[in-house]
Simulated scan of single mutants.
Amino acid sequence: MVEMSVASLNTRGIPLRRSQLAERYAAIAAAFEASTVDVVCFQELLTYWHLRRLATRMPSFRHVSFRPSVAGPAGGLATLSRLPVARTRYHRFPLPRRTADLPLRALFHATLKGALVTELAGPHARLVNTHPVANFDGDWSESNRYTPLLRSELTRLAEVARDAQAPTVVCGDFNVAGDSVLHRDFVAKSGLTDAFDGRCPPTFRAEYLHNGQTPYCIDFILVSDAITVRATEVLFTGTEPLPGGPVALSDHLGLRATLSLP
């Protein structure tokens, strides 16, 4: 068995005004560079500037996996690895059907969404990094207006996860609650197992929610049957003393899992 440590973090969600974005990214990069994590799946790297702010400060993560697009990494997804990478692929999610129920913003963002697949040269494994469309209603019931769109994206993600000749790890900000039917259906279709075994705390910080909304676990590290989970950890739970004052490094908490692979 070979041991590998994988982390996942949505990096950018805090409102831009006075967010100390450059300083936050420097602190995130420093934390991972000083860690023993082997692979980090990042979400919301929306431009090449965002990617450079992390990659240049994580020199030991020599392998940077993303699919180029006009503005930055496709889907805002990039995977940085200390382990050699054999191949990178990107799978777009199905284009959404226009509906009056959904805001144009959500429909536009859905056209950019997908899954980044990074195949490692050793150990023989696949990392799938993803970030489905955000549900700003905070309601994952069957009747919610975002449910058909999210179900379509998660169905495609399950197909990508199943199409594997190697042990597979799926990471990201799924934008669905862990106790929702959408998430349970995805787990059943993909055949994956939650590395945290359903015990992960809410990963979206309550202070960034709209009034009255409830924080949920919406970020996950999921693994295929061939992988054994040795340990898990929640990252960036506190604030950091940046030049402009103490701040959370993201509106999301990060996740880490130590895994054993054949």
Results as ranks from 00 to 15, higher is better:
223 V>E: 02
17 R>D: 15
55 A>Q: 02
195 A>C: 07
37 V>G: 03
147 T>F: 00
149 L>C: 03
30 A>D: 06
224 S>K: 04
148 P>D: 08
127 L>A: 08
256 R>C: 06
62 R>F: 01
77 L>K: 03
44 E>S: 05
150 L>P: 00
242 L>V: 01
201 P>V: 09
150 L>Y: 00
54 L>S: 00
106 A>T: 02
66 F>A: 05
148 P>H: 05
259 L>Q: 04
61 F>K: 04
136 F>Y: 14
36 T>K: 13
152 S>T: 13
18 R>V: 10
11 T>V: 11
137 D>N: 12
202 P>C: 06
92 R>N: 15
108 F>V: 13
59 P>C: 09
105 R>L: 14
181 V>Q: 15
105 R>K: 12
155 T>C: 09
184 R>D: 11
199 R>Y: 08
77 L>M: 09
85 V>N: 10
13 G>Q: 13
139 D>V: 09
27 A>L: 03
242 L>C: 00
90 Y>D: 09
214 T>S: 13
139 D>Q: 07
128 V>P: 05
104 L>E: 15
122 G>A: 14
103 P>K: 06
163 D>A: 15
224 S>D: 04
48 Y>F: 12
156 R>M: 15
193 T>E: 12
227 I>N: 06
20 Q>T: 07
40 V>Q: 01
125 A>G: 07
102 L>C: 00
150 L>G: 06
164 A>W: 09
215 P>Q: 10
80 L>C: 04
161 A>M: 06
